[in-house]
Structures are given as structure tokens and as C-alpha cells.
Design a protein around this nucleic acid. Structure first.
Lengths: 347, 347
DNA sequence: GTTAGCACTCGTCATGGTAGAGTGCTAATA
DNA sequence: TATTAGCACTCTACCATGACGAGTGCTAAC
């Protein structure tokens, strides 16, 4: 917040950051004495106490109970994260190299990439890694294939310019022959190849709205097929690192765990979340109550998008406790997104 | 175990079952008094106590500590489950109908069926539902399609007689044209259509072992492609109901939860498990230490397979605490497997 | 073979007392 | 005027204690 920058003088800012760093390292409320010991502000614990009382009044810290140390509030963390943005990324070089190596090992197949990436994210951060495959809005049809089997089943396979493959089984009129289907496929391919899938859907909807009778039976079948395959599905969300996060002292409460699991299990929710987020550019940080999802207001979320050329083709992110190592985690998410973007452009 | 049937007389069996039923209903050790109150064996608590001491000696019950009631051991549950097998399924009629309705709502698409089913299983049982799509061993190639994009990328799409679609992206020689690929696809389709995928893999391996030079470049490409797409992947495992299970008093221990999550997160493990299991017929019950997976020896597992004609095309199961409502859960798994088998044969 | 009765064991819960960490306030200091 | 030393106060965590209740095992009587 700029407001925080206005209210706080340099010294108070430094002490606030010190408190937060302390608390990120050790999951207990931090008292005035530890600050004087660990940092050399040249101030006594009494002075630190006064300042911490001020910071509490301003809403950056709070006391779990009287005569305990202080813990940061969401706005405290927010201030801290904002100061991080300003300064150059300080993440450990060795760690950086390790991350790069891990990323390099990811196969260059965009279809397995999300799963691998979410694993990698959780391993690197010790929090929960999530990835989402591209939204239809930004993927481009390369080819559609239709293959009939059984008497009235149709396998529809969609391949995009980005190398993404989607498939679906739909039911069709038993009368439709494979020859008809080939004609339909040819029609769609010639008409829509190179078009964004989202635009195809819109176009199809428009055609549907017009007088249906104007089209012959085949086209109406084609429209039906397209309509069903071009709908979004939450199958493309990958989440990992659940078991690891339970080791953190922040997750000692079983109800909190349940809440988290419930949110994460509902992939529709995560789709909505990442969808919402991929509208913006760059790496974003949501701290506790800032979280767009009500179910996640006790956790923090760091997300970014990766791109193919100018189009964002997917989102990645990390979910963790609000008491999170923001510096490290932000750089992991940021670097991963950039790395994947580069990787995709190299192909 | 038949050994139990030999050792135990009718009365002892009944009391053992009574203790187990009590404990399934309320998650506390059961004492001799509650047995006399809830059941009318016409025996005093003292007699029940003596019998319970006998049952403990025989390994069917155990005391968490002196002067606590008894809880069943794994062999206790095993005995109980065996008695269930004998008698006619007593599950609540209303529940049965509800289950049927839920199952009916599942779409008849074998590609979305596993996910939907696992959800349904967990909702019906309040435990964890898992499903696995068919193993290659038992699925039959209907058609393979090859589609080139970018300069050296190939989308391989596999459609089986069962209606299952699999896809993969592989890297190929940039020199291979779409025309060549069509020829390869034609070759595979003519040569292997109607063959079990597992057999195709074996055949391919054999051809590879022979002098490679005997085949022209195209065939060797084809072999390479087949080899890569016909490998198993753990993407076909669906798990749900995690958050629900945390409400159970059996999961009050955070370490136990972590153990469970770790097992479940590693889908390779689950693949191995269900693979192992689908070798046998019918509904199988694994109680605690009976579990084939070391990581799951604190939980119980009930599994079954569903079939397409004579071939099992997938496995379903439920994971829960050893203190599980076996009667209900077994019937849920059993019925679901049968229902899906019927559904598939109707198509 | 069954049962009543009794002594015994153990976990749970409420109580109280102590130690330690950390605060807020006040008065003294630079 | 800002800082600090000192002190009283508060609250938690921890431990020991004791009462209570649930449940057992054993014995003697039926």
C-alpha cells in the first residue's frame, strides 16, 4: 500500500519487515527481545515494544493474546511483499540453478507439462503447486478429427496450434456414416482452422441462432458436435504437494486442513480462480483475505501465466499458508512461468 | 477364515459380531455392559467379559489399554466381513434406490465415467472413492490417427473398441511428411486393428528385436510411435472424497492423514494397486494389514472391476478406515461395478 | 456354566501452583 | 524530546494432584 509508505517512516518499515521475517522463519509470535537480538537496530527492547505497539495500532501486527509476541496481519504481509517487489531478487543462486535443472528435465510436451510442472512447483516450494491448461479463449484450432465407432458413438479429437489435444465422445444419429463425418470434419477444418476456439464457439452459437433449416443435416450435426466439444472442462487442473504441506506447523488444525482440501478437491473452483487471475499479466500475490475465493481466505496464493508468443496458454501457482516464504515462493513462480514461456517459444 | 469358524462356537461368533457392529457405529472401545444392553443374549456382563477375554486371546479383539473396552483387530474385522459374505445383502432398500438413481445420472461416456464414478462412490460411502480406467492388457485398438504439427511434432490419437481415447504428443524426424504418417497409420490400422493393445506392444517389441534394417524407415518410425503411445500412464486414476473423510473420528491424527495423502497423491502407486487387484474377479476386501500396499496398512480397501463383455475394462474401489461400515460399503462397490458392467453392455 | 460382587487399573477432567515469556507503564536519562 | 531501565502485570504452558467413572479380572456362590 502506498498509504503504508506514507504513514511509516524508514525505521518502522525496517522493524515491521524484521518482525515478519522472524515470524516466517519460526512459527511463533515474535517478541521485542528477539528483534533486538537478531537485528542490530541500536535500539532497546523497550523502544521496539513501543514501535510494535504503534504497528499494531496501524493494523500491520496483532497479538494472539495479551503478553504474547506479535504476528503479522494480512496487511502486514502485504506491506512486506510490496517492499520485496522494489528490491532486486535476492534468491539463493544455488537454488536458482537447481530450479533451472528441474525445469529443464520437464519434457517439451505441452500435454504432460502441466502435471509435471505442478509437481515441480510443490517440490521446490514445499507448498501446494497448481497448474491450469489453456483456456479456450486463447487456443487455436489446428485440426478436428471425427471417428465413428459402435453404431452411434463419435470420438471427436481436437488438435490445436499450441499442440494441445482434447477429445470427447458424443452420441450421434446412427444414420450418419463415416463418410458424412469426414465431410463434416473437412468443413470445420476448412472453415475454422486457425481460429480461436472461443471464437469458433461464438460463431457456432450465432449460426445456431439463425434459421436452422437453412443448413443441411450434416452441418447441423457438425454444429452439434462442435458445441459439445468446445465446452470447457476442469480436467486440465493439476494439483500436487498436499501431503507435504501437512508437515507445516500452520496446518496443525484439522478443520483448516479440511477446508483447504475441500477447496482444492473442487477443481471447478480452481478453474474459476485461475481463469479470473489469468486476465492480468505477470506474477500476482494474494494474501489471506485478499484471496478472490472465499474458501481460501486463510491461505495465500501466488500465481502467474505462461505464454506462447503473445497468448497466455496456461496458469501456474502456489498455495500456502499466509505465513509463507514470499520472497522464495514468488521467485519460484515467476521464474517457472518465464522459463516455460521461453521453452514454448523455442520449439 | 475357516479357522475362526472352527474355533468359535455360534454364541461367540454372535458376540464378536455384536462388538464389531457396536464399534462401527460408535468410535469408542466397546465394553461388556453395552453389549448386554444393546443386544439380548440373555447373558450378564460378566459372562460377556469372559467371552471377550477369550476373543482377545484368539486375536479377534484387543484392548487399547487396561480397563478400556475392546476394539476389533484386523482379523476380527476379517471374520466379521466373512460372515457378511454368507448372508443375503441387507442394505437399506431406500439407499439402494438412491444409489441407482445416482448411477443412472452418470453419462454413458466411458471417458468421463471414471471421474464421475469416483465422485459418486465417495458421496455414497463418505469414504474415498477411486476408479481406474482400463489397463492396456484388455483394451483393443480400433483406430490410430497421426497428425503432424509444428515441424517435428506428432499428435498420436488412439481409439479403442471400448470407446476409450488416448492421446500423446511425440517428437519425430522433421523429414517425415503427413503423407508418410498417413501411410504409417494405415499400416498400423490394417495390421493391428482389433488387437489387444498389450499384444501390440509385445509384437512391436519383437519386431524391434529383429534386424531393424529389414524394415524401411517408415516402419521404424511407426514402431517408435507405437512404442511411445502404448506405454501405461497414471492419468487414468480418479480419486475423490478426501475432505469428507477428514471428518471421521478415525482421522484425528494428523500423521495418519499425511500418510494417507502421500499414498493417494502418488497415483503410480494406486495404478500398481488396482492393477494388482484387477487380476482377480469380483469384489475384494482388504482390511488394514491385509492391504497389498505397505503404505495403506492402516486403512481398508474395497475394490471391484467392471466389464465390457467378458473383459474387465476398469477398476473401482473405496478407501476408508479399518473401522468401516463394511456391509454398506461392500454393497455400494459391488452394485456400482455391476451397474456399470450392465450399462456398458447395453450400449 | 453362569453370575454377583469387589478390588483394581487406567484415562479424563478439573484444579491449582509455578515458571517463563512478553507486555505496558512510569520515571529517569541523554 | 526520544530513548531506556525497571517493574508490575498478564497470560500460556507445563506439571502434579485428586476425584470420577468406565471397565476389567478374579473369586466365590449359585
Amino acid at each position: 500500500m502506498t498509504s503504508a509508505n506514507e504513514i511509516l517512516d524508514e525505521r518502522n518499515k525496517q522493524i515491521l519487515c524484521a518482525v515478519i521475517q522472524c515470524h516466517i522463519n519460526t512459527p511463533v509470535p515474535v517478541g521485542s527481545r528477539v528483534i533486538t537480538k537478531k537485528y542490530s537496530f541500536g535500539l532497546s527492547s523497550a523502544t521496539i515494544r513501543n514501535i510494535m505497539a504503534d504497528l499494531e495500532e496501524m493494523g500491520f501486527l496483532r497479538q494472539p493474546h495479551t503478553s504474547a509476541g506479535r504476528v503479522p496481519t494480512d496487511s502486514g504481509y502485504r506491506f512486506y511483499v510490496n517492499t520485496l517487489k522494489g528490491k532486486k531478487n535476492q534468491t539463493n543462486k544455488a537454488q536458482l540453478i537447481e530450479l533451472h535443472e528441474k525445469l529443464d528435465r520437464l519434457k517439451k510436451d505441452i500435454n504432460t507439462l502441466p502435471d509435471e510442472t505442478s509437481r515441480m512447483l510443490s517440490a521446490a516450494s514445499n507448498y501446494i503447486g497448481i497448474t491450469m491448461s489453456p483456456h479456450d479463449r486463447i487456443i487455436t484450432l489446428s485440426k478436428i478429427e471425427l471417428h465413428k465407432f459402435r453404431k452411434n458413438r463419435l470420438a471427436v479429437v481436437l488438435i490445436t496450434d499450441e499442440g494441445i489435444i482434447k477429445h470427447k465422445v458424443v452420441t450421434i444419429d446412427a444414420g450418419t456414416s463415416q463418410k458424412d463425418l469426414n465431410r463434416i470434419a473437412d468443413y470445420i477444418n476448412s472453415e475454422y482452422s486457425g481460429t480461436h476456439v472461443e471464437d469458433i464457439r461464438k460463431s457456432i452459437a450465432k449460426e445456431l441462432a439463425k434459421d436452422k433449416m437453412r443448413y443441411d443435416k450434416l452441418i447441423s450435426q457438425a454444429v452439434k458436435i462442435c458445441k459439445s466439444i468446445f465446452s470447457t472442462s476442469p480436467d486440465d487442473v493439476f494439483i500436487s504437494g498436499l501431503s507435504g504441506v501437512l508437515g507445516l506447523p500452520d496446518f496443525c488444525d484439522i478443520d483448516k486442513i479440511r477446508e483447504l482440501l475441500k477447496t482444492i478437491e473442487d477443481k471447478e473452483l480452481i478453474v474459476r480462480l485461475l481463469d479470473l487471475i489469468s486476465a492480468s499479466e505477470g506474477t500476482q500475490v494474494f494474501i489471506g483475505s485478499e484471496n478472490p475465493l472465499a474458501e481460501m481466505k486463510k491461505f495465500s496464493l501466488i500465481v502467474s501465466t505462461f505464454k506462447e508468443g503473445a497468448n497466455p496458454v496456461g496458469a501456474i501457482g502456489i498455495i500456502g499458508p499466509t505465513r509463507m516464504n514470499y520472497e522464495k515462493t514468488i521467485s519460484i513462480v515467476d521464474m517457472t512461468a518465464q522459463f516455460i514461456t521461453n521453452m514454448l517459444s523455442e520449439r
